Every structure is written in structure tokens, then in C-alpha cells.
Computed example of a mutant assay.
Amino acid sequence: MKAWQLDRLGGELRFKDVPTPEPRPGSVLVKIEASALMSYLKAYVEGKLPAYRPPPGPFTIGTNGVGVIAAVGRDVWHLKPGQRAVLSSHFVAAENVEDPAQVLIGLTSSPEAAAVLADWPDGTLAEYALMPAAAVTPAEGLDRFEAAELVTIGRCIIPFGGLLRGRLAVGETLVVNGATGAYGTAAVLVAVAMGAARVIAAGRNESALQAVARAGGPRVATVKLAGDVQKDAASLREAAGGGVHMAFDMVGQARDPNATLAALHSLRRGGRLVLMGSMTADLPIPYTTLMLNSWEILGQFMYPASAYRRLLDLLRAGMLDISAIRPRIYPLAALPEAMEAAATAGNLECIVMQP
């Protein structure tokens, strides 16, 4: 089969012939129909993201995907050849221990999880992918979606994990900080699907905010942030008609904490703030204010394995509308060009590779 293999971060990336993987115990072999690119894949490949720890030796890059199961290994009982499935790069070791290791297949792991990534190094930018069964979710009943459309659901799964972590409930009001980014925009769409009564999309790009509001519908309001914590918090509370139940922070690479602090101070008593972004500055927490308002601050990395099933159920039921996320399709051989496009794609665009 053909696969994009990287020998090391900052090293040679080649489109080459490699052996098609053979199923092994606990594994599923999937014929890839579509794979979505991360915006930062080019920087990752070039070795410009030093916090990432890739698998040892050459490996196939690529994260989430959609495909058809070609074969399964021993100890796989429910997944069957011929089933359509979505693939998750996020994999948690299945052993019954207190803190099982977790990795992002085809991408990175923490130092203590390096052995897991060494066992499952290869991602989805290939004609076939061999994945652990726990990272494969059946996607039946979604035939109305072409593969290039369905793979954009990977944009939604990460914020869905954070909204589940924050216990977003039907009828609640939510602030999304970083709503003009790809994942922040998806968070707005998912929150609407989950039944939020009001979603406040917050960010600094007015035109991108308006695009998010159009995609999300009448329950979405926007607030353009000015960088002043108290003024921005007041604007968020005004847009919500009072303090919000939950704030979701998906801001990327922020150098100051002001927007996140504004989201925190927009909470009503008993509110929750979920952190899933990549802010590079520390977050100064007002201890007494936090205590007096009974606020919760929750960190969340990725999503539980069950989240993909629930997210696909929202899609099947017509509650989640992903039509606003537009796929731009490239052939698998055109990865260098596609990585350039992904680095500059808008928040409602998704760069998709197809074999």
C-alpha cells in the first residue's frame, strides 16, 4: 500500500510503498476513505513543535479518519469486516489499572506512554490503517454522508469531550472562548446540538464570529473581546442575559490570560470553566472570588472512548449539523500542498485527504 512515512520530526517525509499491515490480536484493519488534516501538521513534520514526542523510527503520520473495516484480529468480537467506521487517534490502554497510558496514534505520547505509541505508531495517511479496536467506532446509519463530509466530525469530537466534562446540560448558557478557531467553532455547533439555550461565541475576529453565528443559528450570540478582563466579562454576561452556567476555553497559543479570565468572570454562582486550549501563559486564579462563587475549573485532555458513539448519535438524529464545515479535498499523493492549505484554512474549512 501507499503511505506517508516520516523518519523523525524535522526529517524526511516520503510517500512510499510499505507492506499492508496484517491484523493482530485486538486490532482492526481499515481501508481508509478519508483523513482530515490538523492545521499544525506541517509544523509538526518540520520539527517545530518540540513538545511532541513521536513514535521511534519511521512511522505513518495522520490522526482521525473514516473508512471501511477490511479485517479484524483475534479478540475482536463486535467489529466486523464491511462495517463503516470512524477512527480516533486518541487511544487509552485497556488494562484495568488506576491510570492507564494514553497516546495520540500517528502523532505523540507522554514519556511514560512511549511503549504504547511504539506498539501503535502508524496513523491514517495511508491506504490502510491498523488500529486498536478501542479506537474504532462503527458509523452505520450515516450513508447520507460522503466520507469527505463524515470525516469532519473529527473536528467536533475534541470539544465534545470538553463539553461532556463540563456537564453541559439542556437549557444552560455557555460561553465559548476561542470560538473563531477550528475547534472553538465546532464547540459552538456541538453545544447547540446538545441543547444549550444560549451559546456566546467569544473572540477577536468580528467577521469570523459572524460566520460562527450564522452556522450555529438563532441560539448563538457573539461578543468581540477587547482584552480588558472586567469589560469583556461584563459584555459576556450581558449577551447571556446574566451569568453563564459554563465557559469552555479553546483558545490556541494565547500569550496572555485575559480572555480566559473574562470567561471565568462571566460565570454565575456555581458555574464551571473547562480548559482545553493551548495558552502559553499561566492563569492567575482569584482564590477568594473562586471560593465565594463556588466556581469549578476543570482541565480536559481529549475525550472518553464512548464519546464518539454519542457524537455519532447526535449526527444520526439530525441534532448536530456539520454541513457548515466545508471539506476541501486533496488526493493522498498531494500531502505537501494539503499541509500548506491546512495551515491557513478558515475555521469553517477542513482539509481532507482521500486515497
Rank of each mutant, 00 (worst) to 15 (best):
T137N: 11
E140Y: 08
E140V: 05
L142I: 04
L142V: 03
R144N: 14
R144M: 15
R144F: 15
A147V: 09
A148N: 13
L150N: 04
V151M: 09
V151T: 11
T152E: 04
R155F: 10
R155C: 12
C156H: 11
I157E: 06
I158G: 03
P159A: 07
F160V: 06
G161P: 04
L163N: 04
L163W: 04
L164D: 09
L164C: 09
A169Y: 04
G171S: 06
G171A: 07
E172W: 12
E172R: 11
L174A: 07
V175S: 00
V175Y: 01
N177D: 15
N177S: 15
N177V: 15
A179P: 01
T180P: 00
T180C: 09
G181S: 08
Y183D: 14
L189A: 02
V192K: 04
V192D: 03
M194N: 09
G195V: 10
A196F: 03
A197L: 14
R198W: 08
R198L: 13
R198A: 12
V199W: 06
I200K: 03
A201G: 05
G203N: 05
N205K: 10
E206W: 07
S207L: 13
S207V: 14
L209A: 01
L209R: 00
L209D: 00
Q210K: 02
V212R: 01
A213K: 02
A213G: 01
A215G: 05
G217Q: 05
R219T: 15
A221C: 08
A221R: 07
A221K: 02
T222R: 00
G227N: 10
V229R: 02
A233H: 05
A233P: 02
A233Q: 00
A233F: 04
A234M: 00
L236S: 07
R237G: 02
E238G: 11
E238Y: 11
E238I: 03
A239P: 09
A239C: 11
A240K: 03
G242R: 06
G242F: 08
G242N: 10
G243R: 02
V244F: 12
V244Y: 13
M246E: 06
A247L: 14
D249Q: 10
M250C: 14
M250D: 04
M250V: 15
